[in-house]
Amino acid sequence: MSILVLAEHHDGQLAGATAHVVAAAQQIGGDIDVLVAGENVGAIAEAAAKLDGVSRVRVADAAVYAHQLAEPMGELLAGLADDYSHVLAVASTTGKNVMPRLAALKDVAQLSEIIAVESADTFKRPIYAGNAIATVQSEDALKVVTVRATAFDAVGETGSAGVEAVEAVVDNALSSFVGEELAESDRPELGAAKVVVSGGRGMGSGDNFKLLEGIADKLGAAIGASRAAVDAGFVPNDMQVGQTGKIVAPELYIAVGISGAIQHLAGMKDSKVIVAINKDEEAPIFQVADYGLVGDLFEILPELESKL
């Protein structure tokens, strides 16, 4: 068996999530190749070569792959897939965009966002917003799989795999990149942070999210939000934690002014320790919280910041 892992990268850097996907590949077993596709991705390929368990890094460096658009990436992967029994990618927006296109081109089903490897053809994945866990077996010759990064520990970085170029360059007349608007943040990436502090509708306004910043700074935390807070315009949508936003599983998740709708819980209930701060003692968030504090967040947050 041999496995191809699609490397996730942004701004010239290999994303940490790739090391988690390699760990999932190791559990499946077999030779592991990593594909780095993009433009000017030499440094990313070098970083991928250091991941433990990787036998070879394949590099597709061409302008057509610059923004990893689904159309050329699907073609590229479909051209390489015949050498492999499994193709894996992180369940990021890039992986979710590209991988089903590959699966359909190869006429195979796809397994989305797996959280455990049972065997080479059987995987566990959450369904119904994480309210049930399905064990699913694929009878297809090629398994196309996206991996929930937070469900697997990252592999180390002591490897030294060989790096070789992939010559295949595909045409893409279907789509083109126009522009990008990225939210700026000095804090850790939401999906990878060890501590996440999230605010909900109870924050009352976007300005009040500043109350979370001091706490996040002291804890080295990322700041998240519920959909209600995003819809109310308090914060941008890439901060959203939940079924339709990001799935996080930090060591500590502090939910402030968040009621705990099932769509939100789907995004954070695998956190190791959950703290809920809410004035409504009946809020469903208290049913999953390890530590709950009932009270006014405008009094509690400044006090918490001063005592950390």
Partner: peptide, 9 residues
């Protein structure tokens, strides 16, 4: 997309 918005044609 993760991290913000992307526009494609």
């Amino acid at each position: 997309i993760d991290g913000g918005l992307q526009t494609v044609s």
